[in-house]
Design a protein around this nucleic acid. Structure first.
Length: 589
RNA sequence: GGCGGUGUAGCUCAGCUGGCAGAGCGCUUCUUUGGUAAAGAAGUUGCCGCAGGUUCGAAUCCUGUCACCGCCUCCA
């Protein structure tokens, strides 16, 4: 979908119309900000009372009326001082704050340029009796908006300026598109997303569950575990190919370790701790310090670097209650973690190799990765020069692998910059999965070293990487991506044998056993349900193949194959079906 | 953690201004022995999230609390 500047203007103008409608309903309303966003717009208000869902109807009606009345968006530039006076008089504290921010910024710029005045104006727009501070651009008039292509969507809370220390305002979201048809498509897509919700499918397909007794932790059922194990095996295979060795480390350590790593300072609020023997232990929120301890077990020579460790890391993070979200945000998660210790001049090669490995994962899931370089955050650890070097290392590796990427400013970890890999799912939604992080800080904090070629001690570099990110999140996303219809190699039940009647149950059992003995996940059920009903159930369970067997098939030792998507494929010799299905599993189609 | 919403059978949900807790699906049993997305009948299913309060009487009203959903914040 291409972004049209025109629709941006429409959305922005709509937020202004929304504000006008709210002003009409609540003359005492205090106004926050109201930008255009992806798929629509929003506006934040400080209102004398809490909005209820019915208010949205009323406000929406008012907006449609204002649109129909075809008001002009009248633009006016006024001086900052005048604007300050006006908005103070109008009792608009957030406006006053914003104008003061603009003033401060303008001062800064003017000092440098030594040409006072040019920034000391702000832009306001007026529709009817409502004046709003806004840089625009807006449409000429409200009549240009098609009211049928717009809909108010929801109300939620939002902190003023996005800071949780500030007051919470009420945010009204609207969706808006260039045409009514696009709006309808969008709403249909939202409905589709609802149908694909992994929490719903997880229950229907019996993959996993959540329980109030342990909020934020998934309970994996046999079918979910099958998917998990396939992923784990797949990931471990690739790790082996790229020279990793598997390790396993404990789930908790004394907080002294976390103080040393810096995690205590940055995340102690988010770590579960327990007291034992007059010591405080923390459940691990990361695997890295443990990997470091293994590295430090021996004196390392430059000859043995790089050392590449991989670990299925069971980690725990005490996320705030409101942040939990099914499998996508949990408190107990399992990472496919990796740590590389290498010489500084091996860094780019190792990163490039990791990028190739990441790229090898995705085709099996029918998803396209997109790469980002996340740079130094404000609360960084270490020296700027080290960061510059690390960021350059990452950029060079990306270049070497001819990867197109975008930069996410200030989005790095506190100990180093990272390459983040996002994917788009079947509905076009973005998710962050894999991450490759370069770290010159932990090795220093933990006094890591190796003996270099001249016999002197030197400090190695450390690279952190995860590809699935977490098994929980990855399976959640896959479930939604495939709408529960997993590709054959991942599918919990690949085949169901369905005898036409119980006279053929024995023949069915034989086929089922044959399939199971060759490693295919097959099942057969004894049931008095009609054939149609059993097919329907198997379809709803998204079982890839149904083998219908009756008199005809038994006589000539065939199976009637029904494909979950393509339907009836006709009769097939059993050997031929085995060959077909094994091919598909191996090629991960 | 903050704001808003929602908690009734395994699932999806109905239950109005307080007055005997319901439907469909599922599950069990029986009948049916089927040919590519729902055979028929009977039966079963409840701490109305939890704890208080108001009331002759609470699924329903009030308070608190827990969990979930959406958003904000956060995400090593």
């Amino acid at each position: 979908m291409k972004k049209s500047p025109r629709i941006e203007i429409v959305r922005h103008s709509l937020s202004h119309v929304l504000a006008a409608a709210v002003y009409e309903m609540f003359p005492d309303a205090k106004f926050g900000i109201g930008p255009a966003v992806e798929n629509g717009f929003y506006y934040d208000f400080d209102l004398p009372r809490t909005l209820i869902p019915e208010d949205l109807e009323i406000i929406g009606e008012k907006m449609r009326r204002i649109i129909k009345e075809n008001h002009k968006f009248e633009r006016a530039n006024i001086s900052i001082e005048e604007a300050l006076k006006d908005f103070k008089k109008a009792k608009q504290p957030y406006r006053v704050e914003l104008i003061n921010d603009i003033k401060k910024e303008a001062r800064g710029k003017n000092d440098k340029k030594k040409s006072l005045g040019y920034m000391l104006q702000v832009t306001c727009y007026r529709i009817g009796g409502f004046v709003d501070l806004c840089s625009g651009p807006h449409l000429e008039s409200t009549g240009e908006i098609n009211p049928a292509s717009m809909k108010l969507a929801k109300i939620s809370g939002a902190y003023w300026k996005g800071d949780e220390k500030n007051k919470m305002l009420q945010r009204i979201y609207g969706v808006a598109f260039a045409s009514e048809k696009e709006l309808k498509n969008y709403l249909a897509m939202m409905e589709e997303a609802r149908m694909r919700d992994h929490k719903k499918l997880g229950r229907e397909l019996n993959l996993f569950s959540f329980h109030a007794e342990s909020p934020g932790s998934a309970f994996w059922h046999p079918k979910g575990m099958t998917i998990w194990n396939e992923l784990e095996q797949f990931g471990k295979g690739l790790r082996k190919k790229y020279g990793f060795q598997e390790i396993q480390t404990p789930i908790l350590a004394k907080n002294t370790l976390w103080k040393k790593s810096g995690h205590w300072d940055h995340f102690k609020e988010n770590m579960f701790s327990v007291k034992a023997d007059n010591e405080t232990y923390c459940l691990k929120p990361m695997d890295c310090p443990f990997n470091i301890l293994i590295y430090k077990e021996q004196t390392r020579s430059y000859r043995e670097l790089p050392i590449r460790y991989t670990e299925i890391g069971r980690i725990t993070r005490n996320e705030k209650s409101g942040e939990l979200n099914g499998l996508l945000r949990v408190r107990y998660l399992t990472q496919d973690d990796s740590h590389i210790f290498c010489l500084p001049d091996q860094v780019e090669k190792e990163i490039a190799s990791l990028i190739r490995m990441v790229k090898e994962y995705y085709p099996s899931f029918e998803i396209e990765p997109r790469f980002f370089l996340s740079t130094r955050p404000d609360d960084f650890m270490g020296k700027k020069s080290e960061w510059d070097k690390a960021e350059k290392n990452l950029a060079n590796a990306l270049k070497k692998e001819k990867i197109k990427y975008e930069v996410k400013e200030k989005d790095g970890a506190f100990y180093g910059p990272k390459i983040d890999i996002d994917i788009k799912d079947a509905l076009g939604r973005k998710w962050q999965l894999a991450t490759i992080q370069l770290d010159f800080q932990m090795p220093q904090r933990f006094s890591l070293d190796y003996i270099d070629a001249s016999g002197k001690k030197a400090v190695p570099a450390m690279i952190h990487a995860a590809v699935f990110g977490s098994f929980e999140r990855f399976i959640g996303i896959l479930t939604e991506h495939f709408a529960g219809a997993f590709p054959l190699w991942l599918s919990p039940i690949q085949v169901e044998v369905i005898p036409v009647s119980d006279k053929f149950q024995k023949y069915g059992d034989k086929i089922n056993l044959l399939l199971l003995s060759t490693g295919i996940r097959s099942q057969i059920r004894e049931s008095s349900e009609s054939l149609g009903k059993r097919i329907r159930t198997a379809q709803n369970q998204k079982i890839n193949y149904m083998l219908i067997v009756g008199e005809k098939e038994m006589k000539v030792k065939t199976v009637a194959v029904r494909d979950r998507e393509k339907g009836d494929l006709g009769a097939m010799k059993i050997d031929k079906f085995l060959e077909k299905i094994n091919d598909e599993i191996v090629s991960k189609k």
